[in-house]
Amino acid sequence: MSRSRAPTRGAFARLAVPAGVLAAVAGAFAYVGSVDPYEPGHYPVCPLLRFTGIFCPGCGGLRSAHAFVHGDMPAALHANAPAVLAYLGFAVLWTVWVIRAARGRPVRVDLGPVHLWTLGTLLLVFTVVRNLPFGGTLLP
């Protein structure tokens, strides 16, 4: 007798968490897509920008998400390019998670110290460059 490849109840249970995460992220993007971050008063101001005048690596992230939702990739990249890379990275990791969960395999993302230090260094360099006079094109 051959085993059937039909999804089992266990497969649906394994997909519940990834589906919940996708629903939460889609809800957040839907909200940011419908509530314009360019209009003052809708979102809080970045505390680092407010008190120091320095743009943090996240500054422009809401504007980037708003443009991304509306399909305006040049505006999304201009507002915060690392955020766009993070959106795309999330999509890839989520897809891998779903495929592995459907197959009953665990998902492991092993980011070692080298990966984390590299990511932190890249974000630090981005932050420094966007706050220097010649980095004006990186400002949100």
Rank of each mutant, 00 (worst) to 15 (best):
R3A: 14
S4E: 05
S4H: 04
A6H: 05
P7S: 10
R9W: 12
A11P: 07
A11I: 14
A13Q: 10
R14F: 08
R14V: 07
L15F: 09
A16E: 01
P18N: 05
G20M: 02
V21I: 08
L22Y: 05
A24Q: 14
A24C: 12
G27I: 08
G27P: 10
A28S: 10
F29Y: 12
Y31R: 14
V32K: 00
G33N: 01
V35C: 00
D36L: 04
E39W: 05
H42S: 14
Y43D: 15
V45D: 15
V45R: 04
C46Q: 08
C46W: 10
F51D: 13
F51R: 12
T52G: 04
G53L: 05
C56K: 04
G58F: 01
G58S: 03
G58W: 08
G58L: 01
C59H: 00
G60C: 07
G60F: 09
G60V: 02
L62G: 01
R63I: 13
R63K: 10
H66W: 13
H66D: 09
A67F: 02
F68N: 03
H70C: 07
M73N: 00
A76M: 01
L77V: 15
L77S: 10
A81P: 13
A81E: 14
P82E: 05
P82H: 03
A83T: 13
V84D: 08
A86D: 09
A86E: 10
V92G: 01
V92F: 13
L93F: 11
W94D: 06
V96T: 08
V96A: 14
W97T: 07
V98S: 13
I99D: 08
R100D: 03
V109H: 06
D110A: 15
L111D: 06
G112I: 09
H115G: 07
H115R: 14
H115N: 13
T118A: 15
L122V: 03
L123K: 05
L123T: 08
T127D: 04
T127E: 04
P133R: 08
P133N: 10
F134I: 11
F134D: 00
F134E: 03
